[in-house]
Design a protein around this nucleic acid. Structure first.
Lengths: 246, 246
DNA sequence: AGGAAATATTTGTCAGGACATTCTGACCTC
DNA sequence: GAGGTCAGAATGTCCTGACAAATATTTCCT
């Protein structure tokens, strides 16, 4: 039961000790050294063995509990969760997802220009109707086939975006590189039939089912940094979401 | 800046102190006593004023930061987030959502019986192919109109479910009442055209776009407690998801 | 042998203190 | 006036210590 996993600590590193511990436990789980269902040593023993205090160990374990890797129960102990949890809680963009899946994403930029916003967009971005925001329209391909039609509105002066940059990289990647720290996203997911224009762009029949997503993303200050309205070919794509309840 | 909000503590209550603090701060935010962007007093002052230690105050604040209500910045302080965050992070069922929206949900149970599982369901529920599980099929109405067709598989002996109970209450509500503690859900959301059977049940044309969701829910031990495959009328319903990145 | 009570184990909560790191703003210098 | 430096203020990390509460295990009695 009591897996004797080795954890190296580097006290001279700027990386917090609790984080070093958490990462190495997570790595052991990923590797399979800690099988699902196996029990960790109790907190006091662990703290003792690593030369750390119990709060530090608790912080490390808490971090992994929040991520859904471990389970704690008073009077029992800490165990690795049984079911395999797909780790897709992160705020990812379609581009990242596709590249990770080895699908060779490509992008065609259809529009990239400041435009006056309508009432609804003004509301979510915290602007007044008539103010300008950056309007972005892209057609996304995967493995050569059209996959999605993406519409975005962003505050001006948020990041220097160019059509060239957007062709080779995802929007989220560019925003992150520009120092934008996205933290919360609100998504509304629905479906509808393709219009004639959409069908033509996406190489579908008119009336074909499309997956729609309207998303607003906020940074760590709670300011809206992006509002998107996207449609995906339902025949080629589905969204995956993981919810963790605390 | 330094809003002077009153917080009552009940030290004789079994509710943890940090949670009492967190709830009352959250309530003040909801009420509007703490405006978005306003700064909280610093942790040491707060601890002092409430007669608590700093770790306890930190735990309360951390809880709200995790829920996306507060933002902390080293060297600066703690602020209420600017954007209004819709709080739909919780694991909810369609029934709960509808009732909250005042839509008068109703349910017609089409099937409720043990059935041998196929390979795919066996896999996600952790059973062997050929084992039996409880099969549940429901038609959900909102304000008198058909809205969704719900298929579920649950482990036998998980909870005592009856057709009568399922007509008046949601599945999640019944599971929770039976002591099942759901914690993680993995959802795959897509869209497709309605088959003839589905169209008839849902009062749509054949080929109409439907929103599909395949979900597996795990309890706090990581064991699968429910696997569902649902279709919704896209013309009447969309899903809302909030992601928080840590 | 079976059931109930006592005990041990383990995580949950809380206190109080120390030092490190980061951000802001004021001040000074060039 | 622009830029750099320094002090203050706030959160981040880590420590020691103690008791409470929930669960599992053992022991004891019938």
């Amino acid at each position: 039961m009591t897996a004797n996993l080795a954890i190296d600590l580097d006290r001279s590193s700027p990386v917090p000790l609790y984080f070093q511990v958490a990462e190495q436990i997570a790595e052991a789980i990923r590797r399979g050294d800690l099988a699902p269902g196996s029990r960790l040593d109790n907190e006091i023993l662990l703290a003792d063995r690593l030369g750390l205090s119990r709060p530090t160990i608790r912080q490390a374990i808490q971090y992994l509990v929040d991520k859904g890797l471990l389970v704690r129960k008073r009077g029992v102990g800490t165990q690795v969760v049984h079911g395999q949890v797909k780790r897709s809680v992160e705020l990812t963009s379609l581009y990242d997802d596709l590249r990770r899946a080895g699908q060779e994403p490509a992008t065609k930029v259809l529009a990239l220009e400041p435009r006056p916003v309508d009432e609804q967009v003004a509301q979510v971005l915290g602007l007044s109707p008539g103010d300008e925001a950056l309007y972005l329209e892209r057609l996304r391909f995967a493995s050569g086939e059209p996959l999605a039609l993406l519409h975005n509105w962003l505050p001006l002066a948020l990041a220097p975006l160019t059509a060239e940059g957007l062709q080779g990289r995802g929007l989220y990647e560019l925003l992150r590189a520009a120092g934008v720290r996205m933290r919360v996203a609100n998504q509304r997911i629905g479906a509808r039939a393709a219009s004639a224009t959409e069908a033509k762009l996406l190489d579908e029949r008119r009336g074909a089912p499309l997956l729609t997503m309207i998303r607003t993303t906020y940074d760590d200050q709670g300011r809206a940094v992006e509002h998107g309205s996207h449609v995906y070919r339902a025949s080629h794509y589905s969204l995956e979401v993981t919810l963790i309840e605390r």
